[in-house]
Design a binder for these strands. Sequence first.
DNA 1: AATGAATGAGTTTTCATTCAT
DNA 2: GATGAATGAAAACTCATTCAT
Lengths: 200, 200, 200, 200
Amino acid sequence: MRGETIEQIFHSAVEVFAHSGFERAKIDDVARHAGVAKGTIYYHFKGKEELFVALMRDGMEKMTEQIHRQMGREPDPLRRLRALLQAQVEYLYEHGTFAKLLLSESWGSVERQQEFRAKIRELVELIEEVLIQGAEEGSFRPQMSHHDTAVAMFGAISVSVLQDLFSPERTGTREERVAGLVANLEKLFVDGVVVSKGKT
Amino acid sequence: MRGETIEQIFHSAVEVFAHSGFERAKIDDVARHAGVAKGTIYYHFKGKEELFVALMRDGMEKMTEQIHRQMGREPDPLRRLRALLQAQVEYLYEHGTFAKLLLSESWGSVERQQEFRAKIRELVELIEEVLIQGAEEGSFRPQMSHHDTAVAMFGAISVSVLQDLFSPERTGTREERVAGLVANLEKLFVDGVVVSKGKT
Amino acid sequence: MRGETIEQIFHSAVEVFAHSGFERAKIDDVARHAGVAKGTIYYHFKGKEELFVALMRDGMEKMTEQIHRQMGREPDPLRRLRALLQAQVEYLYEHGTFAKLLLSESWGSVERQQEFRAKIRELVELIEEVLIQGAEEGSFRPQMSHHDTAVAMFGAISVSVLQDLFSPERTGTREERVAGLVANLEKLFVDGVVVSKGKT
Amino acid sequence: MRGETIEQIFHSAVEVFAHSGFERAKIDDVARHAGVAKGTIYYHFKGKEELFVALMRDGMEKMTEQIHRQMGREPDPLRRLRALLQAQVEYLYEHGTFAKLLLSESWGSVERQQEFRAKIRELVELIEEVLIQGAEEGSFRPQMSHHDTAVAMFGAISVSVLQDLFSPERTGTREERVAGLVANLEKLFVDGVVVSKGKT
DNA sequence: AATGAATGAGTTTTCATTCAT
DNA sequence: GATGAATGAAAACTCATTCAT
């Protein structure tokens, strides 16, 4: 298992990186925050970049893992979509710092950014699979491009969470906020905004 | 009208900031790219921050303006939504560099970032109005929170555009790509993913 | 012509590098010594390495140049050899700091060291030419390898100078010391150590 | 006898120090190269400096020893000179790494460097003795300064060896190379470059 | 208006050395 | 005897900003 110190550094690094973004973040701060000497960080990580990438990798892994766990083996596509939605929103809301980094540090040509986008693609594919499964099964409308739709849904989810996290005027407990966001997204994704004549 | 030199600097700054992000971007690079001396930039702008903010303000302004122009006075909510969608996607796709900055430089507590989020909120409100109007008029389903739904839609739009712009394997002309994205988003927003018995 | 500041930095850099060797030398010291800010050095030179290489290049150039000048157009090989000897010893003695760097920083596989060796080869070739010329003309004994002999002579010259410079107990004016070294080297190179029967 | 581990460290240290020079060499590299932990080196040696000095002392000792052995008790000055030459070239060529360190780490005011110069002086004195003996015996020309001549010869020897070792284009077996260098140096030292009428 | 040399505070990174196990 | 994680002082290097011309 990963050592105590590394865990410590990791934890502090998330805080600091999220608070300041990759460039603004100072290794000095990570060290101070973690209660270790600066050299210790360089003993465990090659440099700022490596630490950050390790961090994000870890975050994405945990996220994917938790989502998988929460979705379980639900066979019904609609319920599966709901579970996925709930899981993603919950995770991102819980790890707002990570969510912020994901959305702000993924667009560019630096190698690390390409890796992040690849990770995002994994998340998108999770959604995509649910969409495809639903379409095959007949309960979901076949999409022009399941992938593009999945991307749009991921965008909706992540930006919703971030916007909410950065809204100073938001009220209610975290659970309530999450529930609200999930319900809203579900409504949008499932039924769209237009009143369908066939439904009440 | 703004002088030749300032225009030059502005133009180069967009390029450089978009390529590297605010922190990574170097004034030196902007100067070289613009073909002026570094001092010249400081003669016209107070500093890096001011240059960047001026830039973003300009971009947001043009965006809002163009969107307003494109939407015209279309009274039908559904058509109005379509027009809005088309306009936003088109603008962001066209100004990918700006889209990238918008999504990556808006999350944080630095003052400038709060200003960017405020601008995003303006865009979101544009969507919100359409939703509200549609709901009042009866063609749109009343949302739990029109604002949250609008945010979600904005997220879907912007992330879709960015993901597409950074996809190396994308094919087709820009017009085709934009049309595809718009069609897909429209489908999702209007009808959702679930097959409704009442519709064909 | 090269700017005042650069000249200043150059001058200080020779001092500092020679005193401490490449690795031990601190850019901070060069800056302080030159009376400029650290940043100024980095404004003019890419880094420590570039400064050092520029320095050595400059030193070698001046050395070659001065030697050429001093040797003039003397056609007689023996006199030419003497002139060369005198010029090399004089220059190295005068620029002991440079001599030290040349001998201590030229052996290794770092690129810069290869360049230094190439420069040394130029000096060696100067000697070689004299030897070949003398051999063709008949006054010098044909050597097994003029190049190897030239290398040996260069080694003798440079180490003699360094050893003398670092001898705490040396006496006499610089001119006397140089004259002594030159005379001694000349004796060795010209006649060898063995008593030849054909000479008194 | 010295323990296995110490021997290992010693051996690796020679490699690493020779490859990078004293300053550039990292204890980490020595440890990795030796297959021991960094702490182990500090268990056996007080520090980097001590390790290096111990190393050089060892090298110088072995060198002096081997040279003495090879020279034997040859009474004839000329043959004695030849033997000395052969022994020095051979040792330095064989221990090129050591030769490099000797020439590059001996010029400076750090204590260790003074010690190295003292050791060099020992080598020089070996040569000096031969010269003096030859002069007293009558077969060598009396020198202005036997010491200076000896220094020059040492310089010629060591630089010749180094230049050869670092020549990428050198050909032939090591024995051949050594033999060539020795022959050439002998020719130079014994007869000089000038054709003397009294010899064939 | 424009320039570009100079600055120095701020960061990242390195590495010999220590020490608890 | 041996280990290797942890340290922190010491350097190298960056870059937004200033200012004399």
